[in-house]
Every structure is written in C-alpha cells, then in structure tokens.
Design a protein around this nucleic acid. Structure first.
Lengths: 340, 340
DNA sequence: GTGAAAGCGCTAACAG
DNA sequence: CTGTTAGCGCTTTCAC
C-alpha cells in the first residue's frame, strides 16, 4: 500500500511559483498576499488536490485538534448521550473526539489521562472514577484544560458540570413518602463518586424532613451497574419485612432492579413501588411506566464542551461549577403501599 | 497556561550524556545498546519524568495511531455496542478511537472520510450511509485500510463484516408465518443500505416459500429511526384491514412500532404480533417480551477491528467478507392471529 | 507583498 | 555499540 500522491505544501509552492510561506499565508488567511498571487495559489491547490496534513499542523502547533473524552462506559446510555452532545459541539468547532472507556477503573483512567497529555490534546472532558482519587495533574501540568462532568474531582481544581443530585434524589424520595411509603429501600452507586454520595444525601434529607429514620439494612451501595442493581434489589425483596418501595440511584441500577422485581414475580406498583434516576427511551414502554428524575444529559454535554472551548481559547476566569436542574417524570410506578 | 516542563528526548540525551539516537533506541528497543548505557538512559528518563511526544512520533512516521470510526449515530444502541467492541480491541493494541457520527448524511460522511485521510489515521472502520454512493476512495488513495461494518460499500473494494441479514429476516418471517400469520406488515430501514435491502429480501423469501403474495401496501421503507418506525406502524394499524403481525427491520424501528402499538391501545400478541431485529437490554422487561433476531454486535466489532489490524500490519490477502449468524430469541410477542 | 530559513520532537540511515 | 545528520510538513519570524 503506497500513498498515491501525497501532495505537500512544497508541491503547491513550486507549481504556483511562490514560496511555501506564501501558500501557508493563503491557507490560513494570515498576513498580506496580493490578490493575483492568492488566486494563482488557490488555483494550484485545487488543481493538485492539495489538502494540508493535519498531523503536521498539530505537530507544528504542539497542540492537536482533539478533545479527549474519558467516561466509564459508552455502553451506558447515559454516557452515550453525553458523548453525542459533546461531539456535536466539538465537530462544529473543528475538533474531533478521542474516546476512552475507563470502566471505573482508576488504573485504566490514569493511563488514559496520561495518554491525553502525551497526545497534546486540546482539552479533556472526563467523568472521574473517584472524587478523591482521580487526578488530572498530568493534564494540568501540560497546560491542557479539563472539564469534569457528572462528577466532581477533588484533587485538581477544574471546571465542573453536574446535575443537582441532591434535589433529584430528594424529590424522588419525597414523591415516595408522599404516597405513604415508610420502608424505602435505596440502591446507590459508589459513594466515592459525586452522584452516589449526593443522591444518598438527597434521599436521607427527604427521609429526615419526613421524620423517618433510615434503616441501614435498606441501603445498598455498590458498583453502579445492572448486575449490582439486580443483586441489591433481590436482597431487599427477600428481606423478612421487605420495603414497600425501592429508590434506585442510576439508570443501570434501575434496569437491574426492574429485572429482579420481575423475576421475583412481584408487580409494580402494587407489590413494590419504584422511582429512580435517569430517563431512558424505553421507560415509557413499560406498563406501568417508571417514575424518574430525568437528567438534561445533552445539555450537560454541550455545556461541558462549551466551557472547555472557552478555556482552550484562553479564558482565564476562575474555575466554575455549573449545576443543572433535574426534571421529575411522574408515571405509574408509585402507588400507596398496600397495608400489611 | 504554560507547559510546566515539556521534557524532550534531547533533554534526556543531554542529562544522560548520550545522543538522542541512543535514547530513541532505548525507547523503542530497536538497535543495539549496551546494558550500562541502557540503564543510565532509563534512569534519566524516570528521573526527568520524560514521556515521548506522541504527536511527534505520529508526524515522524507519517501515520497516526488512531482508528477512525464512522457510524451513523452513537446514540443508536446498536452502534454503541459496536463502538465498545472496536475500542476494546483497539486500545489493547495501542490504538485509540476517533469517533464520528455521520447521521446517515452522505455529505457529512464524505467530510469525515476526508478528515480521516487528512489525519493520516492508521485505519478506518465505517458503516457506509449508502451502499452505492459512499466512497472510501480518499482513504484508499492515501493507503489507509478500511473495514466496512454492518453494511457493504460497492464503490471501493474493502473488507466487510456483515450480519446474515437474509437469514435473520427469513427466520423471523417464517416464525410469524408458522404461527399462522398471513397479512404481515414489514417496516424496513432504507433499501439503499445493505441491511434494509437484505432484510426485505429475507422477508420476501419467507413469504414466497410459504406461497404468500406480499402486499405492497404492507411494506414500508424509510429512515431507520424511531420516528419512522412509529409512523409506519401507525399507518399499518389504521389500515381498513390491518395486518395481524408486524415485522420490524431494526432496533429503533422496533422501538417506534412498539410505542405506536401502545398508543393505539392494542395488545401484543393478541391484537398484533411483533418480531424484529436486534436484541436490546430492556426487551426482556416488556410483558410480553419481544421476539427478535439478535445480532452478535460485539463479535462484529471485534472481528472488524482485528481484520483492520491485520491490514495495518501489512496483510495483503484478497479482500474478504465475513458474515455472522444471527440468533433467534423467541419470547411471547408472537401468537396465532385471532380469526377475524 | 514575498521569500529564505529555522525548527517543532522524533527516528533512521549512515558513519565510525 | 554509539553519534551525526537529515528531514517528515507546516508555520513563523526576519529580511528584503
């Protein structure tokens, strides 16, 4: 396999009878070029089918036109939507996306962060695997701006875009309590990440304001994946005195919990009520539909990318944290508990 | 924002009292280096925290370590899974992923293909927006290997990984016919793409072998998205003599059709049977579950990436086409039609 | 308004 | 075994 043509700026310069500097000036519209020469150069560019080598440009500038996106898993629909939103804004500004799945693995994440630094990317958007342990220092040292999405990062000061998790969890829990639930099971993602910690806080806050003492046996915390959601839900449902409602801390946990409830042959909302985080396209298909706190994921992604662009373009405002409001979607997965 | 250190190979060379060539040899383990010098250099590298500049390396090699992935939309769970599979294999071989959404837009796709050529990526995996119109020529000319996934590309000869669409559609349709359905509605993605065309062929084949004449009024073809699926399903359901079963040609169409059926207040499988393509994680949650032909998406992605790696590493076998077998998942969305 | 020349960080061909 | 050197394609001073 050989490059057929690979026409460089030098070829253009020679054919047009000018210097490479002039061609460069025409290309980037920088510096003065006479109309006549400009036209001649442009004509040659077209004639030769010249296209600037982006690698060479990045190398020369010592900064590439890539945005690194480090998330836990593209297959999680939440992150999928985030990726899409980031991508739309990025491409509109001539940046492209370098995608990495950290799988919530600190080691893998560390590798990818270092990788982004080695690639001299223009900026990084990341959803840290751990609030306390993830470090963006390698990027910081290389002068590469970072925006943290969905989760905070405590070690390095970076711009952050979050959902108002406390409010979302509080509202969801209030909704359950309002329907008369007292024994509410909660299944949460890791408390070492922002969303886990804050959603627990919101849950507890709602319980407290209702004068309810949370039962530690009803609170499960673990890896925010479907298997954990199913596992924890099964545990809750097999309790001698099982909760009348289950509060789920993210979309995959909800999915797992729903499957467990189905397996146990229990009906929603009569046998057990369910309320969770994140809207999914299929949720309205279920009968009954599931009540959730929807996150403005696309807006989160767009906002993060816009903040990053501002930093890339030299904005030196103090670090800021944006918090987006959730939207409660009330369906029919919550009814009043049947008296025991 | 300034680079703190940016230690280059020259710094290492100076500090270690050797030439840059020697450092380079140590780094890439190429060429002979005495044990003593090697150790000294390695020590200096660690001491200085030197990391090779990947941009410079790519530039020097005139080939980057990126794999371009051009799909129609990451938010389509089918492609999401594909991305994940490709990524896993790619990263294991020190390649990273440049992600692009073509949105089935030929113009956008053309831009991205050219972009990949300009970036001198190592290879491209793409799912062409059109079997006849998508051209990978720009990549071909630049000597960049391409693997086409899920769909064929007719203009340029490239390695291709496909699902056996004809078999999948045929089996699904047979399943419906076997249950006694005669008036079967079909909703298919664009016939200009491989999957659309082949799934229609499989559908027609099963009809024909059962001696059934397909009714053109029952066959809908259009953009393979949820809105189209819903739209076409509504049209079918409002027909004076509505079909007793609906065959859906991809996952989003299935989702749309299911929503339309729900809206119309019809029950599955009694009022209308449903069988479609692609397994989704939530399908088992529905009551009844939906019968589908599951595609081995991860395997498709892994296979495509492995084929691409072989080409990148100089494999010059003749172009090949791999066809993966679907797996029928029979649930309860198909019953015998109620007599009119 | 234009050209000559240097150099980004790295590797590889060639000497020694 | 190791060093010298050239150069990948591009942009950007600095002269003229």
């Amino acid at each position: 396999m050989k490059d057929k043509a690979t026409v460089t700026i030098r070829d253009v310069a020679q054919h047009a009878g000018v210097s490479t500097a002039t061609v460069s000036r025409v290309l980037s519209n920088s510096g003065p070029v006479s109309a006549e020469v400009r036209e001649r150069v442009e004509h040659t560019i077209r004639a030769l089918g010249y296209r600037p080598n982006r690698m060479a440009r990045s190398f020369r500038a010592q900064r590439s036109k890539f945005i690194g996106l480090i998330i836990s898993d593209v297959e999680n629909p939440f992150y999928t939507s985030l990726v899409r939103a980031v991508e739309d804004v990025a491409y509109a500004h001539d940046y492209s996306l370098l995608l990495c799945n950290s799988d919530e693995d600190l080691e893998k994440e560390r590798t990818y962060i270092q990788f982004m630094a080695d690639e001299r990317v223009a900026g990084v958007i990341g959803s840290p695997a751990s609030e306390q342990e993830t470090s963006f220092a390698a990027l910081f040292d290389a002068g590469i701006p970072v925006v943290s999405v969905d989760r905070r990062s405590a070690l390095t000061p970076v711009d952050t875009v979050l959902l108002d998790n406390v409010a979302a969890a509080r509202d969801l829990t209030r909704h359950l309590i309002h329907h008369g639930h007292r024994r509410i099971g909660a299944i949460l993602p890791n408390l070492s990440i922002t969303s886990g910690r804050e959603r627990l806080a919101g849950f507890l806050q709602a319980m407290e304001e209702a004068g309810l003492a949370p039962d530690p046996a009803l609170i499960h915390e673990g890896k925010g994946i479907e298997a954990f959601g199913a596992h924890a839900a099964r545990a809750l449902l097999h309790l001698p005195e099982r909760p009348t409602a289950i509060f789920t801390g993210n979309n995959l946990i909800t999915l797992g919990a729903l499957k467990a409830i189905q397996e146990c042959g229990l009906r929603i909302p009569d046998d057990v009520a369910v309320a969770g985080h994140d809207e999914m396209p299929w949720m309205s298909l279920l009968a009954p539909g599931i009540t959730v706190a929807a996150q403005p994921i696309h807006e989160m992604g767009r906002t993060a990318m816009r903040m990053l662009l501002a930093r890339i373009n030299g904005d030196s405002q103090p670090m800021c944290e944006v918090k987006l409001a959730p939207r409660l979607i009330i369906r029919n997965s919550v009814a009043s508990p049947t008296p025991i």
